[in-house]
Simulated assay, not measured.
Amino acid sequence: MFGLIGCSKSKHGEDEPDREFPARDLYDSWLFDGRVRAVEAHCDEWGIFSAEHGFVEPDDLLTWYNTKITDLEPDDRRDLAANVVDDLPETDQLLILMGRDYADPLQAALPDDVEVWDPLEGVQLFDQRGALRDLADRGDPDDA
C-alpha cells in the first residue's frame, strides 16, 4: 500500500523564502505531523499532495509557498489531482490522509482498480488529532 497525505497551510521558511527544506520538514502543523506518523505506521512508501507542486516525495526540496487548494478553480483542482495520480507509483491500494478539497478530486481521478483507504473521511478537523494518533498506534489497516 502506498500512502498519500495532504500538505499543510503552516510551513517553515516564510521569513527565508529561498531556503529549501525536505518536504517532510517544510510543513509545520500538528495535523501534518499526525498524518506523517499515521502513514509511516501503515506504508513503506508515501508522498504528499501539494497544492503548489502536485505530487511530492518526502525528501524533495521545497521552499515556502502560500498556495492553498481552495485558491484553485475546480477545473484546476481536477487537473492537479490527475497529475498527482499520474505521478503516483503504481499501486492497487492507497491510504489517503487529507482534507476533502484534496481527497474528492483525487479519488475522482484514480483508476477504478485502486482501492482507497480513507480513514479520516467524515472525521471533523479537531477530532483528527485523536484519530491520527489511534491510526498511528495501529500497525495494520486490517485492524482499522
Rank of each mutant, 00 (worst) to 15 (best):
T63S: 14
D127A: 11
D71K: 04
L110I: 10
C7N: 02
A38H: 07
D33R: 15
A108R: 12
L120P: 00
D142F: 05
Q128E: 07
P58Y: 10
D112A: 15
D104A: 13
N83M: 10
C7S: 10
D79E: 15
W46S: 01
V39I: 11
A51C: 08
K68V: 11
C7I: 10
F32P: 05
S10H: 13
A108P: 00
L80N: 06
L95T: 00
D92P: 01
A41W: 10
Q93T: 15
D28G: 06
D113H: 15
G122F: 03
R133I: 13
E121N: 12
L135Q: 01
Y102A: 04
D137C: 08
F55P: 08
R133E: 15
K68F: 09
A109F: 05
S29P: 05
D87K: 11
A23E: 07
C43R: 02
E73S: 13
A23T: 07
D71N: 14
D59R: 12
T70N: 14
E115S: 12
I96G: 00
D18N: 13
H12Y: 10
I69R: 00
A81G: 07
C7E: 02
D137W: 09
H12I: 05
C7D: 07
E40F: 06
E20Q: 15
P141Y: 08
Q128M: 12
G130L: 12
A38N: 02
E40G: 05
I69N: 00
R78F: 06
E40Q: 15
P58Q: 08
D92E: 14
P141D: 02
G34A: 05
L26Y: 02
R100W: 03
D101R: 13
A41R: 07
G34E: 02
D143G: 09
L135D: 00
D140L: 06
D79L: 12
D118N: 14
P119G: 05
E115P: 00
L135V: 06
P58W: 08
A103R: 01
F55Q: 03
D142P: 00
H53R: 11
D28A: 14
M1G: 08
F32Q: 05
L72F: 09
L26W: 00
A131L: 04
A108L: 11
R35T: 11
D59F: 05
W117T: 13
D143T: 15
R100M: 12
V114W: 06
D112V: 08
Y27S: 03
A23N: 08
P17Y: 08
R77E: 06
D15R: 14
